[in-house]
């Protein structure tokens, strides 16, 4: 494992810590898209089915369990916690996220790495992860008041994707020289979706202003 991959994973983990911190300390999930969080649960469960069939390392197994567990916990807080669920920005979180699922599944059937159930679901999870942030970005655009923890959460998620790209470039030159179309193209699409957010996030940080995304 190289430093960029580790930094990416740690940034991903930190983003989840920030989100859980926001939910647990402020007892609020305002500005957080339940739609995006539900998509992440599907992404992690379909990708990590290999938990039972393939052992890579203790690190990988532990991280997979953490990602599945925390994503389920976040959805649980937003849907079922009696205080937190009342803060959910229901009226602004209107992206029809279930519409993203069939195209990603069809794409996974057309372009899997190998035609087996786990490989198709793995490809599906890669495609779905690429677009899973869309409901969250839409919600941020509609929010007149984005708190610091929500802004940091989305920034860290985007940073994790950007670090994975650096990791792939590094691995390409130091390891296999193999082109990996599925994760690379999906990863590029996913990171590109954050471009606009990054622009306004960095601008607001530089000018010491509150984060605001133009609609």
């Amino acid at each position: 494992m190289n430093i960029f991959r580790l930094a990416g994973d740690m940034t991903h983990l930190l983003s989840i810590v920030v989100l859980l911190l926001k939910i647990r300390t402020t007892k609020s999930c305002a500005g957080i898209s339940l739609k995006t969080q539900e998509l992440y649960v599907i992404v992690f469960i379909t990708r990590y089915l290999d938990l039972f069939t393939r052992y890579v390392s203790f690190y990988n197994t532990a991280m997979k369990l953490v990602f599945i567990g925390t994503s389920v916990a976040i959805v649980w807080y937003m849907r079922l916690h009696k205080v937190v669920k009342q803060t959910y920005s229901r009226d602004e979180d209107t992206f029809k996220h279930y519409l993203l699922i069939p195209p990603c599944f069809i794409l996974a059937l057309l372009i899997p790495l190998e035609f087996t159930v786990t490989e198709i679901l793995w490809s599906f999870s890669i495609y779905l992860e690429a677009v899973a942030i869309l409901p969250q970005l839409l919600l941020l655009q509609r929010s007149s008041n984005i708190d610091n923890l929500t802004g940091s959460y989305v920034f860290l998620l985007g940073a994790y994707r950007a670090l994975y790209i650096v990791n792939w470039v590094y691995r390409f030159f130091t390891e296999t020289h193999k082109i990996r179309w599925i994760p690379w193209i999906s990863g590029l699409v996913q990171t590109a979706l954050y471009a606009d957010f990054f622009y306004y996030y960095i601008k607001s940080w530089k000018n010491h202003e509150k984060l605001r995304l133009p609609a």
Binding site: D50, R54, E114, R180, I182, P183
Partner: peptide
């Protein structure tokens, strides 16, 4: 069998 490409990533 060798790990499928990218399956050591998260």
């Amino acid at each position: 069998r060798e790990l499928m490409e990218g399956h050591d990533e998260l």
